[in-house]
């Protein structure tokens, strides 16, 4: 119950900031949309008919990329910004526990990422004139499990930010790595499915392009997705805890 109160408070704060600074919010979504437009029209100009065949994959991939970036970067940036604002130590001093406070922030980030992902998806479908299967009972669980691994990576980099502070450039590099993971050729290199986002991206693509329902996937495929989700999340969370301890040992928790 008390965690629910915290969740409400964090979500409310996040929503207030979004509403209070609409230009900032709109420009972020608009920026992503413009990026998609460049890919779409650029791809059409260069690839022609061949590009049209892979358009569904691009839309799904971009949808996932949008959500992954919001979920992953939200956490890493939160650490940096809170330290910058002087509020990080206040978060640490919560009786809820530092880890739980950040876990709640992650949940809120993921919820918001679904919102932005959905919005961008709508805009992309309108722009391309394509239709995709968006069965919420399939897409939402798959998206959440896929994002869990991105969040795990976010925890790792959030932890690094606690100790090493100014690592924003690395955050950006990881975002580029996400593009590669989302587009990973799993058929050619099956081992890639164990990396973050890769398996989820593949399943989400099949679900949205081919209309495969959640229960129609091979159990082994879902097991890999669930396993990677839990493993990355857990490892990230543990490393985040260790990093916060290291930051306290070094006396740099609130530094920026």
């Amino acid at each position: 119950m008390t965690t629910l109160t915290l969740l409400r408070a964090v979500a409310r704060k996040q929503a207030l900031l979004l509403v209070r600074y609409p230009l900032n919010t709109v420009s972020q979504v608009f920026g992503l949309y413009v990026f998609f437009l460049l890919l779409f029209y650029g791809g059409q100009a260069v690839g022609g008919a061949a590009f049209d065949e892979s358009l569904g994959g691009l839309v799904v991939g971009f949808f996932l990329f949008t959500m992954a970036v919001v979920a992953y970067a939200g956490l890493s940036w939160d650490v940096t910004r809170e330290a910058q604002w002087g509020t990080l130590e206040q978060l640490f001093m919560s009786p809820h526990g530092f880890g739980r406070v950040f876990a709640v922030k992650v949940v809120v980030n993921v919820l918001f990422s679904l919102l932005w992902g959905g919005l961008i998806l709508g805009l992309m479908l309108l722009t391309t004139g394509r239709t995709l299967v968006v069965d919420l009972f399939t897409v939402v669980p798959l998206a959440l499990l896929t994002l869990a691994s991105a969040v795990g990576v976010g925890f790792v980099f959030g932890g690094l930010a606690l100790v090493y502070k100014r690592i924003e450039n690395v955050f950006s590099l990881v975002q580029f790595a996400f593009v590669g993971l989302i587009a990973a050729p799993l058929g050619q290199y099956p081992f890639l499915r164990w990396l973050p986002l890769a398996q989820g991206s593949s399943l989400l693509g099949r679900a949205m392009r081919e209309g495969v329902r959640l229960w129609e996937f091979e159990p082994s495929a879902l097991a890999v997705l669930s396993g990677t989700a839990v493993a990355y999340l857990l490892v990230g969370y543990v490393l985040f805890g260790l990093a916060s301890r290291r930051a306290r040992r070094l006396g740099v928790l609130g530094h920026y």
């Binding site: 526990g97 530092f98 880890g99 969370y237 985040f240 260790l242 916060s244 301890r245």
Partner: peptide, 9 residues
């Protein structure tokens, strides 16, 4: 859930 080490003594 609390990360190990986050608040342990």
């Amino acid at each position: 859930m609390q990360p190990p080490g986050a608040d342990e003594g």
